[in-house]
């Protein structure tokens, strides 16, 4: 019975990874940039929400919209102001820039909001949910639900809308896409904007569960394991991998302790790289040399 409870909690917290992982994948697919600032973008969205509610006393619906808008503005600014200047440079330059931007956001947040943990107002219901006699913390359940709705909306948009098709076309062949009249630079920005929404939303949910510190971005490193396991380019795979990793992580944490729980994602990363670099659901784009 105990293990069932841990499993449900694990699956719910794995759901939280999915949003951020989708943000990684959309940018990687569209522009081949691996965004190491993802965690800091999440943290920034969470802090914006905190600033709007606690410090400026807005209601939470306004705060959510403002935080997501701020998160999108940040993401598009990173793309437009920095990365698009560097198009044509080796990929590692672009990736180093995202790492630098991450460090800047983290430092700026630390200077503005201080190093200590801050709590958001309770906008997710606290009341626990019982399935039989298994207890799931209320915030976690509602957070999972919110994440599920956003992830589904994103995937429908990605699959069926005209812009979703344009993003996929760009990812499969940039030059042909350009030839078919797709504005590739605009697609890059769009991918970053979507990633901004996903990062902001997952930041707010994770912040609501655990509180916010400048270290919140470290969650993104667990998300890295999700992305690797799913195979970097698979949108559907991310959902399965995210839930799986959340589940394994919670079980490891429950039975082996917190240190192992933090270490586990990296073990998965190294294992995937050694055994099957394409991940479980990745396209066979990976080139061996």
């Amino acid at each position: 019975m105990q293990i069932l409870e841990y499993s449900l909690i694990g699956i719910a917290s794995g759901g939280l990874y999915v949003l951020a992982a989708l943000g990684f994948v959309i940018i990687y697919k569209a522009s081949n940039v691996f965004n190491f600032a993802m965690g800091e973008m999440m943290m920034f969205g969470a802090y914006l929400f905190f600033a709007m509610t606690v410090q400026l006393h807005f209601g939470w619906p306004v705060a959510v919209i403002a935080a997501l808008a701020g998160s999108v503005a940040l993401a598009v600014a990173i793309d437009r102001v920095l990365l698009q200047r560097l198009i044509g440079q080796p990929v590692i330059v672009l990736v180093m820039v995202t790492l630098g931007v991450g460090s800047m956001i983290k430092g700026a947040s630390g200077m503005i909001w201080g190093p200590d943990i801050v709590q958001m107002p309770d906008f997710l219901p606290r009341k626990p949910i019982f399935i039989g006699d298994i207890l799931i913390p209320g915030k976690l359940a509602w957070g999972f639900l919110a994440v599920g709705v956003i992830a589904t909306a994103f995937m429908l948009y990605y699959r069926f809308s005209r812009t979703g098709v344009a993003i996929r076309a760009t990812s499969s062949d940039q030059i042909t896409a350009e030839g078919m009249g797709i504005n590739v630079r605009w697609i890059f920005s769009l991918a970053w904007a979507i990633a901004g929404v996903l990062a902001g939303a997952s930041g707010i949910v994770i912040g609501a569960l655990n509180g916010i510190t400048p270290q919140l971005g470290a969650v993104a490193l667990n998300v890295l394991a999700v992305v690797m396991l799913a195979g970097m380019t698979s949108v559907g795979g991310v959902v399965i991998a995210g839930i799986f990793i959340g589940w394994v992580e919670t079980l490891v944490g429950a039975y082996l302790g917190a240190a192992w729980q933090n270490f586990m994602p990296y073990l998965i990363v190294l294992l995937v790289m050694t055994v099957k670099p394409t991940g479980l659901f990745g396209e066979r784009q990976i080139e061996r040399i």
Binding site: L99, G100, M104, G107, A108, G110
Partner: peptide, 24 residues
Amino acid sequence: AGFLSPLREFIFGALIVGFLVFEP
């Protein structure tokens, strides 16, 4: 001391970004 460590983080990041963009 409390202010210095985030400031340092910010400046390290800004140096990476600034040099890569303006003076590679």
